[in-house]
Amino acid sequence: MEPIEIFKRWFNEELKLSKARIPTAVCLSTVGIDNFPNARFVSFKEIFDNSFIITGPLNSRKGIEIENNDKVALTFWWTETERQIRIQGVATKISEGLAEKYFKERNVNSQAVSSICEQGNEIDNVEQLEKRVLEKVLEKSKITRPQNWSGFSIKPTRIEFMEFKKTRFHDRKLYEIVKGEWNIKQIQP
């Protein structure tokens, strides 16, 4: 079975059991502009064209780091099924059409925050910023996607699946692209 199909099956199994408020959370790791690794949780949107989609501001730290070095990693940890999936791949900016689609799917509070806030920048008055966001929400008008809000398509080059076992003899399989084809290896726990 292809690794993308395994991912989809595992993801759906976890979603059916998950009690997490945000079951689509995934850890995105980038190489910082200072060459230190940088990790944060983002929301996984879907698999599109055999790539993993995440969204957010292009001028945020993650956006700047991906622009500087397109090699990224995603790590999924699923509590209910006791599985982990590690993905390494290359990130590219998604199309304007996809960015519009994902922005429209966001709730109004998320749209308002994205249209007003400059993610990761320092702020002196958080209450004033919160007031501006609330005013935007209360306007009840359509919120336009900011030009700096988009997303990334992460084309995997490696995917590792790990199923945890009570014996600690975890089952680990590593899929890697070799000469354009997925190659599978069983690796030690």
Rank of each mutant, 00 (worst) to 15 (best):
A39G: 13
D171E: 11
I184D: 03
Q84S: 12
G151T: 10
K101H: 04
S29V: 07
G151C: 05
K179C: 09
Q119M: 11
I4L: 13
A99W: 02
G120C: 07
E96D: 14
E127T: 14
K165W: 06
N35C: 13
W77I: 10
S153D: 02
I66S: 01
G180P: 00
K179F: 02
M162C: 11
I6C: 03
R168M: 14
K155R: 09
V113D: 08
N109M: 13
Q88K: 15
R172F: 07
G97N: 15
S114D: 04
S43R: 05
L74Q: 03
E160S: 08
F41P: 14
M1N: 05
I47S: 03
W77H: 12
G97M: 14
E46G: 12
S18V: 07
E13I: 00
P189G: 14
I54C: 06
K45V: 13
P3N: 02
D34A: 03
R132H: 03
V31L: 15
I4N: 01
V26S: 07
V133N: 06
F7K: 00
R86E: 05
R40D: 03
K185C: 09
P23W: 10
F7T: 01
K179P: 00
T30F: 13
I53R: 00
H170S: 03
K131M: 04
P156H: 01
F7I: 02
S95Y: 04
A73N: 08
E139Y: 14
G32Y: 09
E127R: 10
W149L: 05
P156V: 06
V90E: 12
P146S: 04
K140S: 07
C117V: 14
V108D: 09
I116H: 04
I87R: 00
N59H: 14
S43L: 13
F76W: 02
L134T: 12
E67I: 08
N148Y: 11
T79N: 15
I64L: 13
I154L: 03
E122R: 07
I143M: 03
N38P: 01
T79G: 13
T167G: 01
A73G: 14
Q119I: 11
S114T: 03
E13K: 11
L98I: 08
N69K: 07
F76L: 05
L17A: 05
K173N: 08
N12P: 03
K45Y: 05
R21C: 00
E118I: 14
G63Y: 08
F52Y: 08
L129Q: 03
F36I: 09
T144M: 02
M1C: 11
F152K: 01
C27L: 10
E181K: 09
M1G: 12
R9P: 00
D124V: 14
I4V: 03
A112V: 12
E160A: 06
K131C: 06
I6Y: 10
F103D: 08
